[in-house]
């Protein structure tokens, strides 16, 4: 079976989500791999959301906001850009390919461009392969056990991931 990437998209309400909507009403075909979430502004997207998405099984995350200068709240997309530049450095250190998190500016009129970005990004993630954070974590902890655990009956509620 070929690998179908799971992509979470955080789209700002005023430009990018409207752009995605336009792609829909114009019946432009694009990869079905993206699960879009509408947020009010790209500046609302906490890096925590992105890390949670990656942890929970997303193979890639797309953040889309208004073009510079067009943010409905003036500065939100600049904040998004700065967060993104910093997050990429951190992802790299985690052993996660920074390309898995992509930031794009998509205007309300750019339905076609939105579709193209999603297609391209999906191909790129398909090439990178599954991220598999939870599997990797389980693998990294599989031998972290008390070698004598079996011959004991200790209590205590494990609170593992």
């Amino acid at each position: 079976m070929t690998f179908e990437p799971k992509i979470v998209g955080f789209l700002c309400n005023w430009c990018s989500y409207t752009g995605a909507d336009l792609a829909g009403t114009a019946r432009i075909k694009y990869a079905p791999n993206i699960r879009s979430i509408r947020v009010m502004c790209s500046g609302r997207i906490e890096p925590t959301f992105i890390m949670k998405a990656l942890y929970e099984g997303a193979d890639g995350v797309l953040i889309a906001g208004c073009h510079p200068g067009d943010c409905h709240y003036q500065e939100g997309n600049y904040k998004a850009l700065r967060r993104h530049r910093l997050l990429k450095r951190i992802l790299h250190e985690y052993g996660v390919e920074p390309e898995r998190v992509r930031l794009e500016w998509v205007a309300a009129s750019e339905g076609e461009r939105f579709a193209k970005i999603v297609d391209e990004f999906t191909d790129q993630i398909r090439e990178l392969g599954p991220l598999g954070i939870k599997d990797s974590l389980a693998e990294a902890m599989k031998d972290d056990i008390d070698p004598h655990e079996a011959d004991k009956e200790e209590s205590g509620v494990a609170n593992e991931a």
Binding site: T48, M51, L54, Y55, G95, V96, I133, L137, A140, A161
Partner: peptide, 8 residues
Amino acid sequence: SILRRKKI
């Protein structure tokens, strides 16, 4: 932290 460790 969310990822807990470097990916292996």
